[in-house]
C-alpha cells in the first residue's frame, strides 16, 4: 500500500523558480522527440517479408505560470501561484516500406477521410464563389444601373 503525504494548508509545494525549471525540463524532453524513431515504427518481420511503417508526427506543447501577492500578511493578505500546460500530438500514416525477396518498395498511404473532407470544403467554397458571381441580385442591380443598355 502506498503512503500518502498530507500537504499542509498554506504551504507551497513548489516555488516559482522550481516551476520554471520543471517547465524548461519538460520542454527539453518534448523537443528531444524530434528524432527518426518518431517517424518510423518498429520493423515487423513475417516470413520473408519485412514491413516498416512510417508516419508524419506533429506535436505542440505550451505552458503558463503565474503568481501574485496581495497586501501584507498581517492584514490578511497573501500570495498565490499557479500554472498549467497542455499539448497535442497528431499522427498520420504516410507510407509502408515493404522489403521482400522480390525487392524493396515504398507503398504510399492515402488518408481518404482527410482528402474527402478537404475536397468537400474546397468544393463548397468554390461553388459558393461562383454562385455569388452569378447572383441574380447582383445582375438586377446592374440592370437597374443601366449597365446592360
Amino acid at each position: 500500500m502506498s503512503e500518502q503525504k498530507a500537504v499542509e494548508p498554506g504551504k507551497e509545494t513548489i516555488t516559482g523558480e522550481e516551476a520554471v525549471d520543471l517547465i524548461q525540463n519538460t520542454l527539453d524532453t518534448f523537443l528531444s522527440t524530434a528524432n527518426v524513431y518518431a517517424a518510423y515504427g518498429e520493423p515487423i518481420e513475417k516470413e520473408d517479408t519485412l514491413i516498416i511503417p512510417s508516419a508524419e508526427v506533429f506535436s505542440v506543447m505550451g505552458f503558463g505560470v503565474g503568481m501574485g501577492y496581495g497586501g501584507n500578511e498581517e492584514e490578511g493578505g497573501g500570495s498565490g501561484s499557479g500554472g498549467g500546460g497542455g499539448g497535442r500530438a497528431f499522427s498520420r500514416p504516410v507510407a509502408v516500406i515493404v522489403a521482400s525477396p522480390e525487392g524493396v518498395r515504398v507503398d504510399p498511404v492515402v488518408d481518404v477521410t482527410k482528402v474527402a473532407l478537404a475536397a468537400l470544403t474546397a468544393g463548397a467554397f468554390m461553388t459558393g464563389m461562383f454562385l455569388r458571381l452569378l447572383s441574380p441580385k447582383k445582375a438586377l442591380k446592374d440592370m437597374q444601373e443601366g449597365k446592360f443598355d
Partner: peptide
C-alpha cells in the same frame, strides 16, 4: 514556454 515538433 511553447514548443512545436514536426517529424516526417
Amino acid at each position: 514556454p511553447i514548443g512545436l515538433v514536426w517529424n516526417r
